[in-house]
Design a protein around this nucleic acid. Structure first.
Lengths: 250, 250
DNA sequence: AATAAATCTTGTACGCGATACAATATGAAC
DNA sequence: GTTCATATTGTATCGCGTACAAGATTTATT
């Protein structure tokens, strides 16, 4: 099978969640299509068919990489969506066949979830005017079954963070204050957390290392900076997560 | 698209884990194929192509149902496998093309995980001589990438049980003793558990209801039976699992 | 220089669950 | 009634989750 031909049966859709310091945003692409005699504009997830000779993970990286510059992106497959009717809406079929120049039937898609921090150094690719960050609360009706995919991805985030606490640090700068870290948790769990208890919780994490650096030029007591120490984390957790199974091969 | 035609690009593979009262077994199918001039016999997971008009979940139920009689099977999609080379081994390609009577290229497969109790009332379908239970520790080299799929499924089991304690009761009879329940956890976590502490833990589960029934004709003190009360469980957990996200749509 | 404004940092008390640990009770068989 | 095998049960400790308020620090204001 030739390389770089599309495999028109399986796609990858990526729910890229970006934390901007106060809330979560999802990366969406503007889409223009024709339905009947009308044109329409709406939004979709970044996603597309895999290549015939491409891994699923590679496809997900490629597709996210088409829009944002990131190094070491946290990207995880979380669920597949295979309803026979998910690619049946006329406007979706029409748009897709025009986009890929192929006759489209059923497509099973593999959902990927990415977590990252929206920072001043994060840039969309130049001239990429179609990619936008939309706050999760403001997401309207999306193309295909992308609303369902976003919903399932969001459901997954908390479980991932609880299972593997190191994932939160994808949402924070290298140096961060206790407040910044707390705000991430508050956004994740949708409720305010007690400040004192959160400090205690942080101090119990050996892999969150306090620095001798403090905020500067703030109109209040300067907050201490912390950093995440990956080596300590993997020493503590051994590279495995608690609750792992010993059923198979010890 | 006609119904009941195979969709030769996506398959479902099912890791059916059965607990026999002391250990976990995986349901495997015997396979005979030809490689060169030799015939070979090995084992594979129950799995197969989906139909063109079939949901993934439905396909998984169908495929498991081809071999065992179960009502209300716990069956959960856990991961997709899409390496371009996963269906490239000559013996696998040859066997598969003969089995489905189709030219086979790449196939992306969706992994499903099932949990059930191997009991005296559980039966393979009549004349189904190819299906066997194999203790997890004794699983040898399987067809395709099925070893990898089993491994990932087993990794998933503990997390599922920890996240949703009600899943263990799929591995127990309706009436069970504290010992039986403890043995399940011991097999899951691969280590013995303290008997007294386990009793306390059970007594803290309002949804594990002690019965006024006891073992009979055992050569030692008779153990009390318990049952799992689904209604109480969902009252306690509200049908949702702890740690769910409030990020999206409240 | 004193005060205000903003937010950062910190300690105590309570309860629950996890853990470590050993003696007693009970049903069947002899 | 003794033995055997397994079931059942209580105490002490520790760490974590939670509820709750006062003092510290930096800049801006007067």
């Amino acid at each position: 099978m030739p390389e770089n031909t599309l495999y028109p049966h399986v796609s990858v859709d990526c729910v890229v969640l970006g934390f901007d310091g106060s809330q979560f945003n999802v990366l969406l692409l503007k889409r223009t299509g024709i339905e009947g005699s009308q044109t329409f504009n709406d939004l979709k997830l970044p996603g597309g068919l895999i290549f015939s000779d491409e891994n699923l993970d590679d496809a997900a990286h490629r597709i996210v990489g088409e829009h944002i510059n990131t190094n070491a992106l946290f990207l995880k497959q979380f669920k597949s969506f295979g309803s026979p009717s998910r690619t049946s809406h006329p406007r979706d079929v029409h748009w897709l066949e025009k986009a890929v120049q192929l006759k489209i039937g059923r497509i099973v898609t593999i959902g990927y979830l990415a977590l990252l921090r929206i920072s001043s150094t994060l840039r969309f690719h130049s001239k990429d005017v179609q990619a936008i960050w939309v706050p999760l609360q403001q997401v309207g009706t999306l193309a295909f079954d992308h609303n369902q995919i976003v919903e399932e991805a969001v459901r997954e985030v908390c479980e991932i963070v609880v299972r593997d606490p190191s994932t939160v640090f994808n949402l924070l700068p290298k140096r961060f204050t206790a407040s910044q870290m707390r705000v991430v948790y508050e956004a994740l769990f949708g409720q305010p957390l007690d400040v004192r208890n959160f400090h205690k919780k942080m101090s119990r994490m050996p892999y969150v290392v306090p620095l001798d650096e403090f905020e500067k030029q703030v109109a209040h007591r300067a907050a201490r900076y912390y950093r995440f120490d990956k080596k300590i984390y993997f020493k503590v957790y051994g590279g495995f997560y608690p609750g792992r199974s010993s059923l198979y091969g010890q």
